[in-house]
């Protein structure tokens, strides 16, 4: 005797797994028809300016136990963070010596053209310098103008050592609008004084700068206020005193207070370069939010939800049964054990 039954059976309709399966089918079907939604992502626009003057050759960083120069460390750090910049990441590159930055290329999207940007950073060399002076403040102000022109945030790598030293009257004044260009000054170098390598005309290293190789005082402009107390002071013939200036300008360390002051004056942030992750964090913290609308398809969400439900459907019951079984086994073992004791 057979009973003509209708499908689905009532038990099926009462079975949660049936409805779970239906939900999965709906989700999978929906994954074909879902529209994209627009989300905002933050890209970055950076103008990276790297100081390539002589003091940047000072070897006071170490990488895997070897001393490396500041310039090499800057290059390695930049190349390390390049892949981690959020897309679209437009990066322009400029080098700085004397008193102006020299633009190598205008900002280009690293996400689309990684190899040339990476290669250009790797190719940075102190030999590209067209002059030995480094008037950091002037260079920074012009770099700020340049960043404004190419509509990017500034990342300025320098050790802050003005060569020749600033005159007693102080450095040039910043005439731009404070904070109009956002960005970061990255101080490079150690806190201890280190010798600066010296090179001959052919580019071969020939030792270090000695105390007599560099000027220690800038004698342009009016003399400092304490000049009258100096030995051999004469208002007309020796306004800076008669003794040669002594100092430590032939040695180099990161001039952090000076760079911080420059940052305050111009509205830029400051960080001392240590490891790449900290640099990346600081850059992203200082960079202007640069929202880019991105179309993001909803399909992965539908598919992901379907997968979660599928795993719940097929994974949870066996797990549940196994747990129940284990408990039952334990109880029965307990019961047998008790019985045996009794």
């Amino acid at each position: 005797m057979t009973i003509e039954a209708r499908f689905p059976r009532r038990e099926t309709l009462r079975d949660g797994r049936f409805w779970l399966l239906c939900a999965i089918v709906l989700l999978l079907a929906a994954s074909f028809g879902l529209p994209s939604f627009r989300s905002k992502a933050n890209g970055v626009d950076l103008l990276v300016v790297v100081d390539i003057t002589g003091s940047m050759n000072t070897r006071d960083y170490s990488e895997s136990g070897h001393p490396v120069s500041r310039l090499e460390h800057v290059k390695a750090s930049l190349r390390a963070i390049l892949p981690d910049l959020p897309c679209p990441a437009r990066v322009g590159l400029a080098i700085f010596t004397e008193r102006q930055p020299f633009l190598l290329f205008e900002p280009i999207d690293v996400c689309g053209a990684f190899a040339p940007v990476d290669g250009a950073i790797a190719g940075l060399d102190w030999r590209m310098a067209w002059e030995g002076d480094s008037h950091i403040a002037s260079g920074l102000y012009r770099a700020i103008d340049m960043a404004h022109e190419v509509n990017a945030d500034l990342v300025f790598f320098t050790d802050g050592q003005e060569a020749p030293p600033l005159p007693a009257s102080g450095g040039p004044e910043f005439t731009g609008e404070r904070g109009a260009v956002k960005g970061l000054i990255v101080g490079t170098g150690g806190f201890a004084l280190s010798p600066i390598p010296k090179f001959d005309a052919e580019g071969r290293e020939i030792g270090f700068y000695g105390v007599n190789d560099v000027p220690h005082e800038n004698r342009f402009g009016p003399p400092p206020a304490d000049a009258e107390q100096r030995e051999g002071y004469n208002p007309r013939n020796a306004p800076f005193g008669s003794a040669a200036a002594a100092g430590t300008e032939h040695l180099s360390s990161v001039r952090e207070p000076y760079l911080k002051a420059l940052g305050d004056k111009t509205g830029l942030g400051f960080i001392r370069l240590e490891d790449p992750p900290a640099l990346l964090k600081a850059i992203l913290a200082e960079a202007r939010p640069h929202p880019v609308e991105r179309e993001r398809p909803l399909r992965p969400f539908a598919l992901g939800l379907a997968l979660i439900l599928l795993v719940a459907l097929y994974g949870v019951p066996p797990l549940w049964n196994r747990l129940k079984q284990l408990r039952a086994d334990r109880f029965s073992t307990l019961a047998i054990w008790r019985k045996s004791r009794a």
Partner: peptide
């Protein structure tokens, strides 16, 4: 004054 590699 000096050559500058701008782009590889």
């Amino acid at each position: 004054t000096s050559p500058i590699r701008m782009l590889p």
